[in-house]
Amino acid sequence: MSMFSRLAEQKIEEAVRNGEFDNSAYAGKPLPVDDLSHIPEDLRMSYRMLKNAGFVPEEVSLRKECVRLFDLMNACSSEGEKEQHKKLFNEKSLRLQMLMEKRGLGTSGAFLEYESQIKDRLT
């Protein structure tokens, strides 16, 4: 065991003795499974770090932006404002479509099978 591992274990044991973990959300329960088996092993740590930092893939943020712009477009009373939102919506939609084609996400069997469920979840 390395020096850092031993130091980490000592700190954890000390925190347990002091009761610092008694009121955690998962006290007495198993931790949720973070399944990254679909990601190559050498990229898993970086994906986990990005996920924990709140970063999402570009296609997810573009989809959310499209949903937001669509809602704004439908809520506008002025025609000029509606046209502005429609132009932005079209730009973002085109960018999303190009990104999906580039990554092969729009043509994969899994995506085609679950596309409607994904769209329902995002809208």
Rank of each mutant, 00 (worst) to 15 (best):
R63M: 13
E91M: 05
M100A: 08
F70R: 04
E20R: 07
E79I: 06
E14A: 10
Y26I: 06
S46R: 14
C66M: 15
K82L: 12
K92E: 02
L62P: 03
C76R: 12
R95E: 08
K51A: 15
K64Y: 07
S37E: 14
P57S: 03
Q10Y: 02
N74S: 09
L105H: 09
A53V: 00
L94H: 02
F70Y: 01
N90L: 14
G106L: 13
R44N: 09
R17K: 14
C66F: 05
F21I: 03
E41T: 15
E41I: 15
G80S: 14
E79D: 13
L72F: 04
V60R: 13
R44P: 05
G104T: 10
A27T: 12
A27I: 09
L43T: 01
R68H: 05
L99Y: 11
E79Y: 06
Q84F: 06
F21L: 13
S46V: 13
Y47R: 03
N23I: 01
G104Y: 07
F111V: 03
S93M: 13
R48T: 01
N74I: 04
S61Q: 06
K87C: 00
R63S: 12
A25F: 05
A8Q: 03
N90T: 14
P57R: 01
E9H: 01
F111G: 04
Y47W: 12
E65Y: 09
R95Y: 01
R63N: 11
A15G: 05
L69I: 09
S108M: 09
A27R: 13
S61P: 01
N23T: 10
P40L: 15
L94K: 02
G28L: 07
A27N: 08
R17P: 03
M45K: 06
F89I: 03
I39S: 10
L36E: 08
G54V: 00
G80K: 13
K92V: 05
G104S: 09
E81L: 12
P40T: 15
V16K: 07
A25P: 07
E9D: 04
R48N: 03
Q84V: 10
S24M: 12
Y47Q: 07
K102R: 14
A15H: 03
A110V: 12
K86Y: 05
E13I: 03
F70T: 00
R63A: 13
D34Y: 03
N52H: 08
K82I: 14
G80N: 14
G106K: 14
R68L: 11
A53S: 13
L31T: 01
L43M: 15
G109S: 10
R63I: 07
P57N: 02
K64N: 06
L69S: 06
S24W: 10
R68C: 05
L50C: 04
